[in-house]
Design a protein around this nucleic acid. Structure first.
Length: 290
DNA sequence: AGTCAGGCAACGC
DNA sequence: GCGTTGCCTGAC
């Protein structure tokens, strides 16, 4: 497949309930490998969805979300375009002025659904790192151990499989600026590729506590990373990852002085079935204002 | 040059 | 249970 200017007219709109912001979603700290790629005068991005053909997605000035014909379902599923922001907001606690203010900062933010292994591996490499660096690590791993896919006049790399990461081994991974995270990533890759941990079973597990416990068996995966994996790759919208930014916003705007498990339990109870969406709105809000 | 960042595990109490 | 500490690296 080639992406050339003469095909611009063939772009198709992906149905969705507004609002949706492609840029906010890509900047939100869920996804780290999407590369700017304008197409036919439309601002857009391209990247691999797991193992397959790279996907192009764009959003024009009118807010229309566009992709190439035949990829509508992939784009919809990956970027959560079938979710309903109004329906999600209806599950939030009534009269929460902080959350309402947070939503106004990024009403078009969506929770994407990325492949489980890719999500798990990326968040294992994210500890004590900033977005720019997480992105750098992801790109290095893709280029060294992933599969190249030609798309348009460029090459995109899929995320390396558990087997290829396991084969590389800890010493090689350290050369990718992973530091102490190399050990965790190598062990996780080994556990997944050998079948000791079954990510498909985690994804299908109806009991979220059981799914979280299974993920936390992995070295380098604590509650925060497990919750990120459940939220960003397993469609578990009730998962509520708490990092330093969430601690900050819950302390300063909700006057919560508790920490750890207690804060976790309070937030899950308060924000309910779509707590993860509340988390994303509050996270974005916290980073912009605190 | 030192500090600090979007955590985790191991250890001490 | 709860608090402390080491861990790699790059950006400031």
């Amino acid at each position: 497949m080639s992406v050339s200017a003469d095909r611009a007219g063939s772009l198709v709109e992906v149905l969705h309930e507004p609002p949706f912001s492609l840029k906010d979603t890509l900047k939100s700290g869920q996804l780290f490998h999407w590369e700017p790629m304008p197409f036919g005068g439309v601002e857009g991005f391209a990247g691999c969805l797991g193992e397959g053909e790279p996907l192009w997605i764009g959003q024009d000035e009118a807010g229309r979300v566009l992709t190439l014909p035949g990829r509508e379902e992939d784009a919809r599923r990956y970027f959560g375009l079938d979710q309903s922001p109004s329906g999600i907001a209806a599950t939030f606690p009534e009269g929460d002025a902080v959350l309402a203010e947070a939503i106004r900062y990024c009403p078009g933010l969506r929770i994407a659904r990325q492949p489980v292994w890719e999500c798990l591996a990326t968040f294992i490499t994210s500890s004590l790192k900033q977005v720019a660096h997480i992105r750098g690590i992801s790109m290095t791993l893709r280029q060294r151990y992933g599969e190249p896919h030609a798309f348009g006049d460029r090459i995109f790399h899929s995320y390396p499989t558990p087997a290829s990461i396991a084969e590389a081994g800890e010493a090689e991974l350290r050369k990718c600026a992973l530091g102490y995270r190399a050990k965790s990533l190598a062990l996780a890759a080994e556990a997944v590729s050998s079948g000791k941990v079954d990510l498909g079973a985690v994804e299908r597990e109806p009991d979220i506590a059981a799914a979280r416990d299974a993920l936390m068996q992995l070295h380098g995966v604590g509650e925060k990373i497990a919750n990120c994996v459940l939220l960003f790759s397993c469609g578990r919208f009730e998962a509520f990852p708490i990092d330093v930014w969430m601690e900050r916003v819950l302390r300063e705007r909700y006057r919560k002085r508790i920490k750890g498990r207690k804060l976790q339990a309070w937030a899950e109870h308060r924000f309910g079935t779509h707590a993860g969406y509340a988390q994303q709105y509050l996270f974005h809000f916290a980073r912009k204002t605190l």
